[in-house]
Design a protein around this nucleic acid. Structure first.
Lengths: 239, 239
DNA sequence: GCAATAGTGTCTTTAAGACACTATCAT
DNA sequence: ATGATAGTGTCTTAAAGACACTATTGC
């Protein structure tokens, strides 16, 4: 019987073959009436030239969690950290990456288009692709499946929370939230239902300002500082 | 510019330091009116003698997914594969394991107590621990936190599905499902609500048999073969 | 004034909560 | 027959759906 200290002194982490571990993020935004996902053109092998999710290897010297890895890679590509970031799922297996048995920890993120538009416009390898046009692109590895999982999470959570506010700028109108919700869910939503939810959630507050949108001015709203997301006990579109 | 084939020929997966990757499972069951989690007494270092979740390293020669790793380890410890198995979350960081930067993929599982009682009784290192008595045990690594995350998942999902049926034997009465739901949620549930949900879910069917429970006989139910779980659009206990 | 968008009032619908009622079985 | 547990009927309640109504603004 040895002590833990003795055991650790002699421990060799490379004795057993271990999987290749990466972290990838599905970052959604809304732009011109479409739901888009941030994709990066792969500059190097493998799958060079394909479009892949922003991600990469964990830097065990710098990252305290895989969340840090996700944030680091997203900040590199989008120039800003997302408004929403949560773990999505992991994807693993011997065949998903030609380099061998691999595992990716996928994160799910949201951001307002305006918050990163300038940065993304300035780089040539990152681009917002509308999710309904992904068929036209060669996607790397199993990233198509990861995106679908992210889409499913986005739609589910939109049914029982105000998650779409994290796709909007700091201040926004009820109409913007309404449009965002309809784009994500792909069907019409009663305006009244959303307004009731804004009230009931306690997540949002009026800024006091209004903006002209062509007709009557609309009041501006923002998320209360440091407020947690509110989960409703019923879904929208319950049929 | 090199081709992918040339690149792969020269690829060395050990060039970059990579995290220690494990798979752990939170397997819950119900026994004697208590919610229990399967724990294993650690036979070797690190954290020898502590109680930990059943889990271990991925065997990249045998496991096609981390799900297979979870199943392999659970079958070793519980002697049977769980009725329910889904991915829970990942936990990572430089300090959670003394061997170095580590990552565990946590799975969430349910099984009926009777299905693995004989096997667990036959081994000395695995035991069902009631979740409300875990304070009395030295738990390994961050397994306390992983269990709490599993508990949260179990309680949330119980509010909008019939998930507790996966903690019950193949055939069961409405009263058993009712009791299971109340134990998991920790508060009384209207019998009528559950009966309505059984009907509406389309997941269950009567076996045609009845069992005596002391008074009037109760009808037996089972899950329809290969049926998917039904998600309700409202939660129980919505207040 | 009129068109257009913002915002409200209120009736209907759905599924849960509450709880009393009836049914069946062992004794 | 009685008591206990199984199972039903039905009223109330909470929140979404539907949709018509009023309010405000630019022209």
């Amino acid at each position: 019987m040895i002590t833990e200290a003795e055991y650790l002194k002699n421990y060799d982490a490379t004795r057993f073959p271990s999987p290749l571990v990466t972290v990838d993020s599905v970052l959604f935004t809304l732009h011109e009436g479409k739901l888009c996902v941030l994709m990066v053109e792969r500059a190097s092998q493998p799958q060079q030239g394909c479009w892949g999710l922003p991600g990469g290897f964990i830097d065990i010297a710098r990252d305290q969690h895989t969340r840090d890895t996700a944030l680091r890679k997203l900040t590199e590509k989008a120039g800003v950290s997302p408004s929403w970031l949560e773990q999505l799922d992991t994807f693993s297996g011997p065949d998903r990456d030609p380099r061998g048995w691999s595992l990716t920890i996928a994160w799910f993120a949201l951001i307002a288009w305006v918050d990163c538009a300038p940065h993304i416009a300035s780089v040539s390898d990152a681009r917002w692709l509308p999710v309904d046009e992904l068929d036209g692109y060669a996607l790397a590895f199993d990233h198509q499946k990861i995106i679908e999982t992210g889409l499913h999470r986005l739609r589910q959570k939109t049914m029982y929370s105000l998650l779409p506010v994290y796709c909007l700028p700091d201040t926004f109108t009820q109409a913007q939230l309404h449009e965002a919700t309809e784009i994500i869910l792909g069907q019409p939503i009663q305006r009244k239902s959303l307004i009731r939810r804004i009230e009931a959630s306690g997540m949002l507050e009026e800024t006091g300002e209004s903006v002209a949108t062509g007709a009557r001015k609309a009041r501006l709203w923002r998320r209360k500082p440091d407020v947690d997301i509110h989960l409703f006990s019923r879904n929208l579109l319950a049929d």
